[in-house]
Amino acid sequence: MRQNIIISIIELIRGLAVTCWHLFVPSVTLQYPRQRWTVANRYRGLERLLLNEEGKERCVGCCLCARICPSRAIKIVTGEGEDYNKEVISFEIDIARCLFCGLCVEACPKNALTMTGEYELACYNRAGMIYTKEGLYKSPEVTKYKK
C-alpha cells in the first residue's frame, strides 16, 4: 500500500514532466492554406492526359483505362477523324467517383495518362467534378489564398 502511494506520486510527477517537456517540442501543425504540403513524387492526385513529343494527343481511345476503372469514372467516346483515323471525341473523368487507385495509369499502353500531385479538388457543384479533355490536358491550377 505504502509502496503504491510512492509509485503513484512518482508517476504523477513524471506525467507533469512529460507535458512540460512537450511545451518546448516544436509543433507539427501545418498552417494549411498558408503553408503547403509538398507531395511525394508518386502521390496519386488528379489525373492528367499527356501530349507526345510532337504536341499531339497520346491517347488513341483504346478504352483500356475505362475498362479497368473499378468505379467506372472514365467515359470515352471515339469516332472517325478527318483523315479516316480513329479519334478521341471526348474523354471525361468523374472525379467524384474516382478513387485514385492509379489502375488507369498502369493500364494505359501509350503512357497517355498520369497522376499529378493536385489534391485540392473541391468545387461548388457536381458538374465541376467532371473533368473533360480540356481540363485534363491543362496542368491543374494552384489555388491561391489571401493571407
Binding site: 512537450h22 511545451l23 517540442v25 516544436p26 509543433s27 507539427v28 501543425t29 498552417q31
Partner: peptide, 13 residues
C-alpha cells in the same frame, strides 16, 4: 495555447 503546445500543436493562429 498551453494545451496546444503541450500536444505539439499551435492552437489558434
Amino acid at each position: 495555447k498551453v494545451a496546444a503546445h503541450m500536444q505539439d500543436r499551435l492552437g489558434p493562429m
